[in-house]
């Protein structure tokens, strides 16, 4: 590969030498920065400004010049509600359904994911055999693409899939009775295990969306937490053992407090990603049934790109609202890492 690159790099060097003679050592730094700054400017900062203009204009044209100014109408449409707790009373009920779905989803997904990631990291941090192997086992799904994740689980959960076959086989045993009792206790309806429609039933579709999302991303957070656990100095534990502290006390008084900063980073990171969930759930349920698993990014995608007419203004307004949430979350994240950033 170097044989291809080397001549190219040598050719670039000639104009560069000339530039360097003209500009001097201080300005040459800007030449190195230029491509990156251009890309950031064009595809990150300029879009932020354009987004505001889109949010303030209506119509279905892409060209900003052809779009009529509507002031805050898009925001008004999104935000006017008689009762903010009831999506049906809102002018754009789909938006509010997406908002509430996202809030519910993020709460459950981040809670379960961080919880299981912590348990897994604690187990992997013990003296166990084949630790590297098990670590990569939990990490493997992180690499899979969202569409592949969705299809793997769709195949398992389809009406004549292996999960229904398994439940069929267990039918009438105590396992099913017990599971059914748990679901009833949680406010669901009793399980009838004959060919459950996992993906077309609103409650189950939501449950499995959370499940596959936890399944797909848990390994990533496990890895970060494991790194945090391994950074805790050994001698603290040795001192605790000397003092005769029980395992429970060691965990509560040493491990968890020392892990707290890492936990906070993990939770914020998970929130930032959770709010932007789209890919795997869209490929899995398409947002349905109805709007049961429609999240905020899907709302933006459908208003601006998939639906007819294409309401770019509404999509932009919704993404500005989303951006506000992300700015706050990312701000917290940066504040948490501030020591590692200014290096």
């Amino acid at each position: 590969m170097l044989r291809v690159i080397a001549p190219v790099m040598n050719v670039i060097e000639l104009p560069f030498r000339w530039l360097q003679r003209r500009l001097g050592l201080k300005l040459i730094a800007w030449v190195f920065l230029l491509p990156n700054i251009l890309l950031f400017g064009l595809f990150a900062f300029l879009p932020v400004i354009l987004n505001v203009f889109y949010g303030m204009t209506g119509g279905t044209d892409v060209m900003l010049a052809d779009r009529p100014n509507v002031g805050a109408a898009n925001f008004e449409r999104l935000l006017s509600c008689d009762n903010y707790l009831d999506p049906n009373s809102c002018r754009d009920d789909k938006f509010w359904r997406a908002v509430y779905n996202t809030i519910w989803f993020v709460t459950l997904q981040v809670g379960f994911m961080v919880g299981f990631a912590l348990i897994t990291a604690l187990v992997l941090n013990r003296k166990i055999r084949a630790r590297g192997f098990f670590r990569s086992v939990f990490f493997f799904p992180v690499l899979l693409s969202p569409v592949v994740v969705a299809l793997i689980w769709k195949w398992i959960l389809q009406r004549e899939g292996i999960l229904n076959a398994f439940l069929d086989w267990l039918n009438g045993t105590w396992a099913i009775e017990g599971l059914s009792a748990v679901i009833v206790a949680l406010g669901g309806t009793a399980l009838s295990v004959q060919g459950i429609a996992w993906i077309t039933d609103a409650g189950w579709a939501f449950f499995w969306s959370v499940f596959i999302s936890v399944w797909a991303h848990m390994g990533f957070y496990t890895l970060i937490l494991l790194a945090g656990l391994q950074a805790i100095p050994r001698d603290v534990y040795e001192a605790a053992t000397m003092d005769g502290a029980s395992a429970f006390r060691t965990l509560r008084r040493i491990t968890l407090p020392l892990l707290a900063p890492t936990m906070l980073v993990v939770v914020i990171l998970a929130l930032i990603k959770g709010v932007q969930t789209f890919d795997e759930v869209y490929a899995f349920t398409g947002g349905g049934p109805g709007t049961a698993t429609t999240f905020i990014i899907q709302y933006i995608y459908e208003e601006g790109f998939a639906g007819q007419p294409r309401l770019f203004g509404l999509a932009a307004a919704a993404s500005i609202l989303l951006a506000l949430v992300l700015v706050v979350l990312t701000g917290i994240q940066l504040w948490l890492n501030r020591r590692s950033v200014d290096g």
Partner: peptide, 20 residues
């Protein structure tokens, strides 16, 4: 500025990116 771009994931600027 580089840090600031962390706050601008693709998902929040889809419409203007599409225009560009």
């Amino acid at each position: 500025l580089v840090i600031a771009t962390l706050m601008i994931p693709q998902t929040v600027v889809l419409v203007p990116l599409y225009l560009l």
